[in-house]
Nucleic acid binder design. Structure first.
Lengths: 214, 214
DNA sequence: GAGCGGTGAGTAATTACTCACTCACTTATT
DNA sequence: AATAAGTGAGTGAGTAATTACTCACCGCTC
């Protein structure tokens, strides 16, 4: 009656959210084909039939996950702000440390890769919201700085991709392939930003020769 | 006798090779769980039963593929040679254009990602043979050049990963995510190498901006 | 008592894998 | 040279288990 098994029925929305959460981590772990609807139901603590009350097909559930996980953009504001101040280092550091940070969970990255590999129709959208925004944004900034003479003349889009590439590859290595990190998160970010900015900032060219000093 | 179709029986080895080829492209396209043994048999032009005469389980067939596709390393010799001459640009260009080149097929990259995501036991080995060699090799070279004073002081392993990261990310973008290339292969490689080497070579630094952020 | 959250017990299709068997070809014996 | 016996490649027709999905039916709460 009262205290014990006071199992209040969830609202439809709560249940959907719960299903999406449960399914997301399963899909991220084992892919679409590797996950069964029975597992999803068990993880969400409901019967299998209920899953289909909320989502007409397994694929629709998958789609709902991809469509929901498009939350980014508190970052882009911070980037925008630093961009206005022309604080190059901070712009790049913000982007890198958003990806490379202690608590980051690999669910989204795994979902992104799975959806692309398995050719899900929402994959492109998912990719667009999670990555394309970043390097489009970054490319625009780089172009601006080139025009201003602060950066060398490079293809801005390639440069942006190169930087994001460093960062994403780093995540791939240790979130997907299990390669251990041998430096702290901060050190890693700093190194990447240093490397990249050094190659980008405009400086009088002294044709590559070893300056043996120290 | 003779008559109709001259269908010679294949040797066991031929058949196995054929099965591996057929299965590899299917697994690369649709993943392990997304591929059925019936499809594999049809692609190889044999009955499903024969597949199991050659490989005890579907997973064993998958393993055989990963174990077989570990052919690289005509490249490493060329790299080694350029490394002896201290031709930095060529070392990096060789590695980059080995990955970014017109005819490159995405089968291996897809297999690599699928095997890592799906957690196959041979995934680590596969990764080791296909990627780890590269950045270990590159890291060693970078370290040498740092000691010689030609490169700035950086963590060699991080630097190597950063470079490979640019390149691999580039492949990811257009082989997995279908992002179009807007530059030629050569231009792309040159840009990446330029960017990276510029950030690495040792030059007298004037600007006061490179300082640890904390 | 109606609507909604929730379920147990299905079902048809697909799955990896097996088995009894045939057929092409090789080798040993006559 | 003829043939019997053996070997291994190859298959059609299964099977038991699992799959995504359905449906008739609860029972709580407005």
């Amino acid at each position: 009656m009262t205290a014990r098994s006071k199992q209040r029925r969830s609202t439809s929305q709560e249940r959907q959210a719960g299903l999406i959460t449960a399914a997301a981590s399963l899909f991220a772990a084992k892919g679409f084909n590797g996950t069964t609807t029975k597992e999803i139901a068990r993880a969400a603590g409901v019967s299998e039939a209920l899953v289909f009350k909320h989502f007409p097909t397994k694929r629709a559930l998958y789609g709902a996950i991809l469509a929901e996980k498009v939350t980014v953009n508190e970052l882009l504001e911070a980037v925008e702000e630093s961009a206005k101040k022309r604080d190059d280092r901070r712009v790049f550091t913000l982007i890198a440390s958003f990806r490379i940070r202690p608590g980051a969970d690999s669910t989204l990255l795994r979902l992104l890769l799975f959806s692309a590999l398995e050719g899900h129709e929402l994959s492109a959208m998912f990719f667009g919201k999670h990555h394309r925004v970043f390097y489009d944004h970054l490319a625009t900034y780089i172009e601006t700085r080139i025009v201003e003479g602060a950066f060398r003349k490079v293809d801005p889009l390639l440069a942006a991709r190169a930087f994001i590439g460093m960062v994403v590859h780093h995540r791939l290595l240790h979130e997907i392939f299990g390669v251990p990190m041998h430096r702290s998160h901060d050190e890693t970010v700093t190194t990447y930003v240093d490397l990249f900015l050094a190659g980008l900032v405009h400086e009088p060219k002294a044709p590559a020769q070893r300056r043996r000093s120290r």
